[in-house]
Design a protein around this nucleic acid. Structure first.
Lengths: 266, 266
DNA sequence: CAGACCATTCTGGTATACCGAACTATTACA
DNA sequence: TGTAATAGTTCGGTATACCAGAATGGTCTG
């Protein structure tokens, strides 16, 4: 859906004429660029904006009712995070949603697994009391995850619970930079996971076991084991992902899609 | 130097009035935001813009001769990479050069070391011929580095040579995402290194040895050893850095600096 | 009927004016 | 003299108009 689809409810239908921040946003202290950033992010992750599809500034502008300036900022941000890419040489650049390829998926999972490994090893190096409390919390989250898996909960809930688990140990012991890196990487892996859902669903019991291994290593204060366990969780996911990608094909090529045709008067 | 220093040569003195890209840039395909981005980056790394100092959009505009739009983009980019930070609550935000603190330095080195460890282990997993060729090149670079160190070459050259070494094995085997991450992290560690130069200078012989260990592990195809060696190189640097930071004090606090005083007419 | 030409349009980059929040220093008033 | 009101100023956010490169599709010419 090239972002200008008329069906979706426009958040601010014709909110031109200087509203400065935006009522919703101002209340929470979130500016417009953040708002549109998250809107686009959600559309990309969910696949409403499919991999490889074009994302034209002006289309987003028409869709959101904002001006080009905040939209541009949001797009630049997405671009820097790798969710959107600029194709074509200077003077004829176009933005597309970053395609999902086997190589890229492998790398995303590899890097994310490695960073989480670092986070896990730091968590396992916490003082005993904090560490054990964290482990308790992790096991609790994992039980919830496991229960939801057995109950065949909706995908969205499964993703959310899985993410909660990972987020919890990453944010428990890591500094702000590692947390930020993890936050910016997460949407990318989630994109792969959601598109190739079948892998995740097959793998839930494995994932539950691997989560428990992480919690156990943190509980024992074994940094090296925690790191290995976290990395392994991602590796096994990556392994299945790779298979599914070759089976189902990659999504969204890097070739230049035709631009929206120029309509003439006559 | 708050960016508006009049002494420095302005690249485009009064190039207002729509020049579109900019002659220099257009030729190479580099747009203005990239240009000002690198200019600011260099000023921050070199310390011309000291940690904690303010970076006001309009000051940069006055300095560069560009309009606010590209400058804004460049600043956003720097902000996302963590070289510039926004302090103050919404409605009164100001940008400052990210301060250098002990905790942050430790984390930067830790994360960068970990990522390079991953890169090194991938390099060691290359096919034998590529791997050996890479090792040869690394040893050669390290000899150059060592020679420059003994000859007490200027700092800038030492930094450049050290970076070349690391860059070489990172880019040899890693995918684009890891390379990009490494590229965006590097300026941050360099900032610490340049500010607390003494550590690096003391440590040069150690670093040379550690570099050789990395090259040897890659040569042998020992991924685990390569990873450990790369991480150790950063750990030993981080250790010294921490000492020097406590000795010399941190640079640039997070407190709100007074704004430039409002000059009244009367 | 084929190929060159050209107008129209899309697209991202750039310049600039305005907004509103907040800070500062002066001024007004007690 | 002390304190509160106030006007000038700073500063990031926003809207919008213009630019130039390039692709598209129709038209014109041989």
């Amino acid at each position: 859906m090239p972002a200008s689809a008329p069906g979706r409810a426009k958040p601010r239908p014709h909110a031109k004429k200087r509203l400065s921040p935006d009522a919703r946003a101002a209340a929470v202290g979130i500016d417009n660029v953040t708002t549109v950033y998250y809107e686009l992010l959600a559309s990309i992750i969910s696949g409403q904006l499919p991999p490889g599809s074009r994302v034209a500034e002006r289309a987003v502008v028409a869709h959101t009712g904002l001006s080009r300036t905040p939209v541009r900022s949001a797009l630049h941000r997405l671009q820097q995070e790798g969710l959107v890419a600029s194709v074509g040489r200077a003077g004829d650049q176009r933005l597309i949603v970053t395609p999902l390829t086997g190589d890229d998926g492998r790398e995303v999972f590899l890097v994310e697994g490695h960073l989480e490994g670092l986070a896990a090893s730091e968590a396992a190096a916490l003082p005993a009391d904090q560490r054990k409390q964290l482990a308790r919390r992790l096991r609790e989250l994992n039980r919830e995850f496991s229960a939801a898996a057995r109950a065949k909960a909706p995908q969205a809930r499964l993703f959310a619970l899985d993410f909660r688990f990972h987020e919890t140990f990453v944010e428990a012991a890591s500094g702000p930079r590692l947390v930020a890196l993890h936050r910016s990487l997460r949407p990318q892996s989630e994109r792969y996971a959601r598109l190739y859902v079948s892998v995740l669903l097959d793998q839930l019991p494995t994932s539950v076991k691997e989560h428990n291994a992480i919690a156990a290593a943190i509980d024992k204060g074994n940094s090296a084991a925690a790191q290995r366990a976290a990395e392994k969780n991602w590796q096994s996911a990556a392994g299945r992902l790779a298979k599914v990608i070759v089976a189902q094909g990659e999504r969204g090529g890097w070739y230049l899609q035709p631009r929206t045709p120029a309509r003439h008067k006559s």
